[in-house]
Design a protein around this nucleic acid. Structure first.
Lengths: 147, 147
DNA sequence: ATTACTGCAAATACTTTGCAATTGT
DNA sequence: ACAATTGCAAAGTATTTGCAGTAAT
């Protein structure tokens, strides 16, 4: 899980400049378990530093990702989500409410990918789609049932 | 793996109309192991039916997906790819050349996801990112090495 | 003082939608 | 004939880029 101090030191040691914008992006992610979208991170930073631009947030996230401090999730169709926890785990996406939750993976699952001798894997993303417990309890809306 | 006849019959039985455009989308995917992008499918269809529109291709793909005849892949950042093979397997994405290859998954891997009692999974997507054998052999281009 | 970084605005990329015309059944 | 489907064009959503000004070191 991303730690603010570790992140700052890691970046500094790589010669990256620490700006208030970046610090706030890190702050938004540190300890965050909600897998926020870029827009959500942008909102967090903007509340504290109103002149920040969305482009800067995108650039900061790419920077953090490049330095291995966060993981970018592609499972939410067309929207980038960020995970400050870079350890091996899967993500469950609720198709009804949009919730993204962590799912532990048995250590063996990671090995599967590493068994490939024809491919040199650097990252594995496991996305599970379905309906979460809370939504499964609720009947689906009429609008949704139609589709 | 998607079979043209099976697909046509499945759709017909569901009361879906068979148009030349749809037939060509199916044809483009049947037996295709390259995980084509929407654009590539569009090109295939257009060569044979020049007035087809991209929107129709998108709609046809959504239809096939809804009927469980294909799987939509989200692993290629910002671009939809299609897989006519709906059986359980992972995908390896080469970060250098863009190649997408099938990777078998041990049956146990699928069970992992199904162990969740708090979540009702309908689909699991496993994306492996790295560098393929062919690219690993080649030295990276100077431009790429810089980045 | 240098040079990385930011903010802006425009560009690019991908996908969806509304609607009139068309076509499969 | 009827309703589903298409093609078009426009809108919507997401992300990237060029560049002049700003700020971290």
């Amino acid at each position: 899980m991303l730690d603010q101090h570790v992140a700052v030191i890691t970046l500094r040691d790589s010669g990256v400049r620490m700006t208030p914008q970046r610090l706030l992006v890190i702050e938004a992610l540190a300890g965050n378990r909600s897998h926020p979208t870029v827009e959500q991170i942008f909102e967090y930073v903007r509340e504290r530093y109103p002149t920040v631009s969305l482009a800067t947030v995108y650039q900061s996230l790419a920077l953090l990702s490049r330095h291995g401090l966060i993981t970018e999730l592609h499972g939410d169709r067309g929207t980038l989500r960020c995970d400050p926890d870079t350890s091996s785990h899967a993500h469950a996406y609720c198709r009804r409410c949009g919730l993204v939750m962590d799912v532990p993976l048995p250590p063996a699952a990671t090995h599967t990918a590493l068994d490939l001798d024809t491919f040199n894997p650097t990252q594995v993303e496991v996305s599970i789609y379905g309906v979460c417990a809370a939504c499964a309890g609720q009947p689906s809306s009429p609008v949704e049932a139609e589709a």
